[in-house]
Design a protein around this nucleic acid. Structure first.
Lengths: 192, 192
DNA sequence: TTTGTTACTAAGTAATTGCTTAGTAAACGG
DNA sequence: CCGTTTACTAAGCAATTACTTAGTAACAAA
């Protein structure tokens, strides 16, 4: 009986995610989203309720996106020191400049919204909680593989690496390539 | 002959700085500034040209502000490892929570604007250049005082510390106190 | 083909954005 | 007192904001 949607909610959400990633929450207008998502405002509100809910869904989508792409190798159950090193060096590399200037959507959100909105803040916390667990697992694997000393405090080092990763996201916008490489190489030296 | 301004430009700029620090560039409206600065819109435009110029002046003011307050001890010509450690531990401390949730105006700006506006980006770069020089000087002093090994690459470690400090600014919004303390203590362990 | 349900387009809402302008008040040399 | 210069207040500008609504089109069962 009913008429069917002629757009893919999952696909337009991914497009919305990219707009928010590029421009931030406040600076992204519904008109821009309308244009980039390729659907009418009415459809945006029909599918995602309002701008804030769309943004929250976009953060969740970003989590999926980074898990499938950026953190893919780090999320392998047996990922260890070599995967971590590869990741960090790549994050500081010139060739990833296109990514660099956008930074991390979640870091950008933390900086822009902070704790001013409880719902959005919850998503930020959840995101970094999953990154923390990922890092913790990598450290445990690295110890098991004898890649790093078993004397370290795993939780402490996981939090250190989490802080470094958040630092990299900002530093990718404020530092040049040499500075970024310096930052990352000293951070790596600390764990190995 | 002429009538004189009955507000202090330096004082209203400091108030503007605090509004931008709290809410960011885009989310701060001229009406809000009018209210917080305690002067009419006309006067804002007469003194600071437009919103963007006011924001840039606010960043410069922030540089003065942090130099006189937050970085006061670190900027002493002979500041060394002990000053640095005190600073980092304080940055991760619970008692500074009021500051914590605002983060750093410049990190917030880097996340929000990034390289999208060349004039604003220039201020961000300049700010962190001065922090870099401060950190480099501290490391040189620390070596001279035999507080740290003279084998380290000073520029490399200065960039590491710069990255850590940018990380702390974000982490103050995403981490709990324990996590922040972990992050900072491992970072300190790396230099001493 | 009719009917009921949902999805579309396009126009419009009030409120807010950054910024301007017209008119008046304050200062002080003459 | 006057005259000139600058600073103030308050109203108003067009453009944009997030969001809605009225009307129509598409679907599929009856």
């Amino acid at each position: 009986m009913p008429r069917y949607k002629n757009y893919d909610e999952n696909l337009v959400l991914e497009k919305a995610m990219n707009v928010f990633w590029e421009d931030g929450y406040k600076a992204t207008s519904i008109r821009m989203l309308e244009k980039e998502m390729g659907i009418n405002q009415f459809s945006i509100y029909a599918s995602f309720k309002n701008k804030k809910e769309l943004f929250i869904k976009a953060i969740q989508k970003y989590r999926e996106h980074t898990a499938k792409n950026i953190y893919k190798d780090l999320l392998k159950p047996d990922a260890g020191l070599s995967e971590l090193k590869t990741f960090l060096l790549k994050a500081a590399d010139k060739k990833t400049a296109k990514f660099k200037y956008k930074g991390c959507l979640v870091v950008n959100t933390a900086a822009e919204i902070g704790i001013k909105d409880a719902d959005i803040n919850r998503e930020v916390i959840m995101y970094y909680d999953s990154i923390y667990n990922m890092l913790r697992n990598i450290l445990l694997n690295s110890i098991a593989k004898n890649e790093i000393s078993s004397n370290i405090n795993v939780e402490q080092y996981a939090n250190f690496l989490l802080g470094v990763m958040q630092g990299i996201s900002v530093a990718s916008k404020t530092m040049n390539t040499k500075q970024l490489a310096d930052f990352v190489s000293v951070a790596i030296a600390q764990i190995e």
